[in-house]
């Protein structure tokens, strides 16, 4: 398993950099060319959401992105440090917060006025074939992955 980790300040300008890095590593890992646009858009959505959340709750905290090739899959995890108020609201009727949440299910549960959170996660759920969202009081973690060819060059 090879992992590239990137942390960046919660500035909108850095989202493009994160997209470019993720796309470059996806290509090196052997993700099919036809899927690279999906990787670029999904990573952009996850990072945009994190930046918006940090700007509201904790502008001084960095956002972390991990890019990993493991067992024939290219996996991206975006972690923020902002409390997931909208997600907690979405789960207010649940007995307890689930550990991992299916992206599509989560997007459908979100209140309509949480446009960036709900819309962005819904787009990610449509783009990646495996998405899990881990909400918590300390932040949100979005993990998504795509198939990578066995012949791909290892990321590190």
């Amino acid at each position: 398993m090879a992992t590239v980790e990137l942390t960046f300040s919660a500035l909108p300008a850095h989202v493009r950099t994160a997209r470019l890095v993720a796309t470059a590593i996806a290509r090196r890992t052997g993700v099919a060319e036809a899927l690279l646009d999906e990787v670029r858009l999904a990573v952009g959505e996850a990072c945009s959401r994190a930046v918006e959340a940090h700007r509201v709750h904790c502008p001084g905290e960095p956002i972390r992105i991990e890019l990993c090739d493991d067992s024939g899959r290219f996996e991206v995890t975006v972690t923020d440090s902002a409390p997931s108020d909208d997600l907690e609201q979405a789960y207010k009727d649940e007995d307890e917060l689930p550990v991992a949440v299916n992206g599509t299910e989560l997007a459908s549960l979100l209140p309509a006025d949480t446009l960036m959170s709900g819309f962005g996660i819904a787009v990610i759920a449509a783009l990646a074939d495996d998405v899990e969202v881990y909400p918590s009081a300390k932040g949100l973690r979005i993990r998504m992955s795509w198939p990578a060819a066995a012949s791909g060059i290892r990321a590190v």
């Binding site: 858009l41 446009l115 960036m116 819309f119 962005g120």
Partner: peptide, 8 residues
């Protein structure tokens, strides 16, 4: 490139 922010 266009994301959900642009759609909004």
């Amino acid at each position: 490139f266009l994301d959900s922010t642009g759609l909004g």
